[in-house]
Design a binder for these strands. Structure first.
Length: 609
RNA sequence: GCACCCGUAGCUCAAUGGAUAGAGCAUCGGUCUUCGGAACCGAGGGUUGCAGGUUCGAGUCCUGCCGGGUGUACCA
């Protein structure tokens, strides 16, 4: 049961009646926007939901806002299905707020049904869509670092949530496996490889070559001053930057040696990132990297040229989106190599042909917003069949900062490796887990390690997801591992507390779910908890609307708060009869919803911690 | 130069144009003979960077400033 959806249906009926009766000129296209003004109240003293459209409609109707509200209310009460679920709205409040309260009977019935429901009372989307989620997409030749975690964690959460909502979700890791970074490794391999080191630890050696050559090619004085090896190499090869690009171009042209090296290096690079995905419990339906689309690139450029969208300029080929003055979107370099814009355009076409999506989400750093604007615009002008009906969305996110407010780096100024970051999170979590009450410990060393892994990884993910993704965020182990506040550890603890009740009480949860006669919502704290539980589906709808997982974390945190208040004030195991069953059912549903919600965020839970 | 993003409590952050701008941390106070106290309840703390404007209503939209970040023709 989604109360908000039910109430919006009733409001739709009321507003259509208003239009039909000539009270206000409301067109069919206006209705959806007006219905968005039906939402939960900011303060429970106003009721559960409110409609605020009367104030806006007043001018259009040429009447006072309160009069319009009265007209809406009269039709709302008469709407089919309204009275079965909601109390009569009464008079408008203030300038024209229409406040609505769910009846206790309807609330109790709905929460009782949710207890017996596999989907916890969450209705699936009425119109399932095919959604491609393009996320993570690291450059395989570079070590994964803290910057990759946001795309990976946010993208995975969005995919899980959309899937639970009933959409057909296709996740794709669009690996950077064909760009200049490979030219760096190829050049490094040819000029300064350490074969013994490569035989021992290929990943580390490729990482060393990448870091070394990047410094040589960039030739920034301050970096070279700090790195004598790079400085010496740079002095020896003043033309390194150009040579690196040449290696990349040769790879793209099919040069046998570079191709052979690429094929040798790829499994090494893939193994490295797959290990991290396994640890994060992140999976993909497809991993179609840039190299996969490489055969399509020449045709993409030709097609865009043939349609008069792209043309040669200063030796390169670009799509001029803003006339001749603005910078073009380059799709082929003067040396013949293709760019990521080329790949992105070819990828859109390929996805359209093979997956027929309704929506494609690109979970990528906000710094690339201009790139995506241009790519989306170029794709529209390209006139690909079916593209007019596809939503292309850049799900942008901010930078990860250190506690000094600068981009997150080690003291030495290097980017922080993702694996080291996860290790530190788990290590710190182990210290926190170990500090708990020994009396109910009894956990083996293996259990404690498992719990620390779940809590540590969960803390890192949750901290990222809990923040509005559009802003930069400050990475702090101390804050994310706090046991209070909106953190993974607090949420996981809430789950463990619920588990504890059933263990201690020896309650058969399956039987409870089947036989619970009815949940009671007579106490305000029971009522508040029940209502919050039933808003799970609304929270997921809101996450989808703006691709914002922090809406779900905030809702889960509120749920945990409702539960704590309920549990602190009212006896559960010590209650008797129907009241005991009712409260146990609320506990059971809370535990399952918290667990499901965390699972949708890609975060694990434990039975004891 | 131009474009985009950001500026909210001491700190880290919330708040689809709605009602009294909310949490956590920190500070101070309270509850309870612990159904997991890793809890609960409460207080103080704000001219939402500044100045205008639109609106019944602005942290949110528009304009101009100030401050910070990012991007800006051949990296991704």
């Amino acid at each position: 049961m989604n109360f908000r959806s039910a109430l919006r249906r009733a409001f739709r009926h009321a507003l259509e009646g208003l239009a039909a009766d000539g009270v206000a000129a409301i067109g069919p296209d206006d209705i959806a926007g007006l219905l968005e003004q039906v939402r939960e109240t900011a303060d429970a003293t106003f009721g559960d939901y409110s409609g605020t459209m009367a104030m806006g409609l007043a001018k259009k109707a040429g009447r006072k806002p309160r009069d319009v509200a009265v007209e809406i209310i009269r039709r709302l009460e008469a709407a089919p299905g309204y009275a079965a679920v909601f109390e009569p709205p009464g008079d408008p409040v203030g300038p024209g707020f229409i406040n609505v309260r769910v009846t206790d009977a309807a609330l109790a019935a709905a929460v009782t049904r949710a207890v017996a429901d596999q989907r916890l009372g969450v209705a699936a989307a009425e119109a399932p869509l095919t959604v491609v989620v393009d996320f993570s997409s690291p450059n395989v030749a570079k070590p994964m670092h803290v910057g990759h975690i946001r795309s990976t964690v946010i993208g995975d959460a969005l995919a899980r949530i959309l899937r639970f909502r009933g959409h057909r979700v296709i996740t794709d890791n669009h690996l950077g496996d064909w760009g200049t970074q490979f030219g760096m490794i190829l050049w490094g391999w040819k000029h300064c490889r350490d074969e013994a080191a490569y035989a021992l630890d290929p990943t580390a050696e490729l990482g060393r070559l990448y870091r070394l050559v990047r410094r040589v090619a960039d030739a920034k004085p301050e970096e070279l001053a700090a790195d004598p090896a790079a400085a010496a190499l740079a002095a020896q090869h003043p033309d390194a930057a150009r040579e690196v690009l040449a290696e990349t171009a040769r790879l793209h042209e099919g040069d046998p040696e570079n191709r052979r090296l690429w094929e040798a290096f790829m499994p090494v690079c893939r193994g490295e990132i797959d290990r991290i995905y396994a640890r994060l419990h992140v999976t993909f339906d497809h991993t179609l990297g840039e190299s996969f689309f490489q055969p399509l690139l020449a045709g993409t450029v030709r097609d865009l040229e043939a349609r008069g969208l792209a043309r040669e300029s200063r030796g390169a080929v670009g799509v001029f989106l803003r006339g001749d003055d603005g910078p073009p979107l380059l799709i082929r370099k003067a040396d013949g190599a293709f760019l990521y814009a080329t790949t992105d355009l070819a990828t859109i076409r390929w996805r359209l042909e093979h997956w027929k999506p309704d929506r494609i989400l690109y979970v990528v750093d906000h710094r690339q917003s201009e790139h995506f604007e241009q790519v989306f615009e170029a794709a529209r002008r390209w006139g690909l069949p079916g593209l007019d009906d596809v939503e292309l969305v850049h799900v942008a996110f901010g930078t990860v900062l250190g506690e000094d407010g600068r981009p997150f780096k080690t003291r030495a100024g290097d980017t922080v490796g993702l694996e080291a970051l996860l290790d530190e999170g788990v290590e710190r979590a182990a210290a926190v887990v170990g500090s708990g009450d020994e009396g109910r410990g009894g956990m083996s060393a293996a259990d404690r390690r498992r719990v620390a892994e779940t809590v540590g990884i969960g803390a890192i993910k949750y901290a990222d997801l809990a923040q509005n993704r559009t802003t930069d965020y400050v990475f702090s182990f101390d804050k994310m591992l706090q046991l209070n506040g909106n953190t993974a550890a607090y949420m996981q603890y809430a789950v463990a507390r619920v588990e504890g009740i059933f263990t201690k009480g020896g309650v058969d949860r399956e039987a409870l779910r089947r036989h619970c006669a009815g949940v009671l919502v007579s106490d305000p704290r029971e009522r508040a908890l029940a209502l919050q539980l039933l808003r799970f589906g609304e929270a997921l709808e809101d996450v989808e609307a703006d691709s914002r997982p922090n809406v779900l974390t905030a809702w889960l945190y509120d749920l945990a708060g409702c539960y704590s208040t309920f549990y602190d004030a009212l006896p559960v195991l010590k209650a008797e009869g129907p009241e005991r069953d009712s409260r146990l059912a609320l506990c059971d549903l809370t535990g399952r919803v918290l667990r499901q919600g965390l699972d949708l965020l890609g975060i694990g839970t434990v039975e004891r911690m």
